[in-house]
């Protein structure tokens, strides 16, 4: 949803259905998250597997390409990073652990059996 401050009158809408590049960086998709990836910097070897596999470009790195953390403004909490991490440096924790108010219990369709196969 566009913020109320962004709603334009018809005279001010850019012509041609145009929107501008990279403006989605204003959209806080992190609000969707029910599970939070927690990075243990001591275990992280900065192999960048999480960075490569993150659907939401939410793994942050420094100028030496070392993993510095997770951008919670965007991270949707899918858990891919935790699964692909060879060092076990990322663990998924319920968002409720980080809020004063209890978070909604996680929902969704029952996943398949991949978890079993991969020993999760």
């Amino acid at each position: 949803m566009s913020g109320s401050g962004l709603l334009k009158c018809w005279q001010d809408v850019p012509p041609g259905t145009v929107t501008f590049g990279a403006t989605s960086r204003e959209v806080e998709t992190g609000l969707w998250r029910s599970m939070r990836p927690v990075l243990d910097a001591a275990k992280c070897v900065s192999c960048l597997k999480c960075w490569l596999q993150c659907p939401d470009a939410s793994i942050t790195t420094d100028s030496d390409a070392r993993v510095t953390g997770i951008d919670f403004f965007f991270c949707k909490g899918c858990g891919v990073c935790a699964k692909v991490c060879p060092a076990g440096a990322i663990s998924m924790c319920p968002e409720s652990d980080f809020l004063s108010a209890p978070a909604e219990a996680s929902r969704g369709a029952s996943p398949g059996k991949a978890g079993e196969l991969f020993g999760a």
Binding site: Q53, G79, V80, K83, M92, P111, A114
Partner: peptide, 12 residues
């Protein structure tokens, strides 16, 4: 959603 997998398992 369609494959009915845990989202975390995409690579596996």
């Amino acid at each position: 959603l369609f494959w009915k997998i845990d989202p975390a398992d995409q690579a596996q």
